[in-house]
Design a protein around this nucleic acid. Structure first.
Lengths: 244, 244
DNA sequence: CCAAAAGTGTTTTAGTTACACCCATGG
DNA sequence: CCATGGGTGTAACTAAAACACTTTTGG
């Protein structure tokens, strides 16, 4: 990035440039299963297939800003946990023209996730079926309410797979799970998130202790209401210092 | 990425596009310390500062191809372990013009690393001093042979920090360490790599057993030569199946 | 036989899992 | 008082760490 960049600053048309886009993987855990928001394509290419919401990166905005703008504009929500995932740069990933796409994933609690569906009618919820062990390979599939797999546009299936892998990988050592829960939550709800993402049953006492020993949880003293059995204590996530 | 992309395919000049570059973090462990290859900038901006080797992504090549091309062209080596790290997209990260940079890191055994220095005279080796616990924060510093920190151009310091964090994070569960060793190596050499990257002393018997129990190592039956004491057995890395 | 580092066996410790049980609530 | 899920204590197990030890080479 020396001479070439220097020259280009004086002659911006010297090289043909790819377009740069951001695609958003909006994830949540809904009814005990990982879910993602998709839009149905009504134009060429991949007409009728399902795609992640995305858009081009403006010349005056950073990648992170673009991701947040798309979160607001296309998905009608703000203030989600957003993290850069990977940049997809195959030459033919878009048949129309050269587009490099920076994939971001955003995590939301289920209530805000389903609420967004109402205000953004072009979005649809797709359930993710994750082959186990999805840690290493096997494509993730997005399914509609009947469990039928949806056809995904571009390389968006790859993006989904990578998002699920990353989510799994970070679940244990980061506070990422709390982005999928409301501000107050029960330990059972937290365990449900873990079980949905990892696709395993976890031992209740072991899970409780592990979580409480980490020191990330703060008891609110309040209890769940509306249950016909013993109400569970509500906890709050206390951000650890060295957490990104 | 619907209407906008569709329109743009017919009118490529409609939007001003950022340039896309790839920067390479060429790392190794030399003399028991993590090291990186840098070039000294002789032009504006950051004249005299040190930068990672990099270059623009051609319109007809993928990001991975660009990374490999730069590895060959700028660093005069091929066939390294290369992995995409992160994409840096701040608007002002390059004062000349808008450049988005996809950072890759490449890992090499020390012998090939130092050999490359001879054939590429514009490259210099910098030792990395990693604040512990570097897992969470604190910038990594690149130092010359005298231990004086080097001034880094652009956001390349951030790139280095992230590369070290990623290396540390993946060390334990992936075969990444073997990219830093020649084809045959002793368990002591492997432990040295771990200790250099993690910046800790490790217990020898525990380390041996952990490594051998993983099943990634294959004894060659050969032994080290030239030592004036008991020669160590040479091992080979046997790629695990689900390994990327 | 000595120094130096390779390599092994055994005990200790810590962290996780499994299981059994008690507790609190609505009906 | 019963069903249901919340919450806790204890034992069993497993994996890592610490330590002491034996082995093998060159000189």
């Amino acid at each position: 990035m020396d001479e070439a960049a220097f020259l280009e600053s004086y002659d911006p048309a010297a090289y043909e440039r790819p377009s740069v886009a951001v695609d958003l993987i909006l994830m949540s855990v809904v009814d005990g299963a990982p879910a993602v928001l998709l839009t149905r394509r009504d134009q060429h290419p991949f007409t009728g297939a399902w795609a992640l919401p995305g858009g081009f990166v403006g010349i005056g905005e950073s990648l992170d800003e673009a991701a947040h703008r798309i979160l607001v504009e296309k998905a009608r929500m703000s203030d989600a946990y957003v993290e850069q995932l990977y940049t997809f740069g195959a030459v033919d990933r878009d048949p129309r023209t050269r587009i490099i796409s920076v994939a971001y994933f955003a995590l939301l609690p289920a209530d805000r996730f389903t609420a967004a569906l109402k205000s953004a009618p072009e979005l649809a919820l797709a359930e993710l079926t994750v082959p186990w062990p999805g840690e290493t390979g096997g494509p993730v599939e997005a399914c509609n309410g009947d469990g039928d797999p949806l056809q995904l546009a571009f390389d968006h299936g790859e993006m989904l797979s990578l998002a699920v892998r990353r989510l799994r990988g970070k679940l244990d050592y980061s506070g990422i799970a709390f982005a999928l829960l409301p501000e107050r939550f029960t330990l059972r709800a937290l365990q449900d998130i873990y079980e949905a993402i990892l696709d395993t049953k976890l031992n209740k006492p072991a899970f409780r202790r592990r979580m409480l020993d980490r020191g990330w949880l703060e008891a609110t003293g309040e209890r769940e209401t509306g249950a016909s059995f013993r109400p569970a204590e509500l906890y709050r996530y206390r951000q650890a210092e060295g957490e990104q």
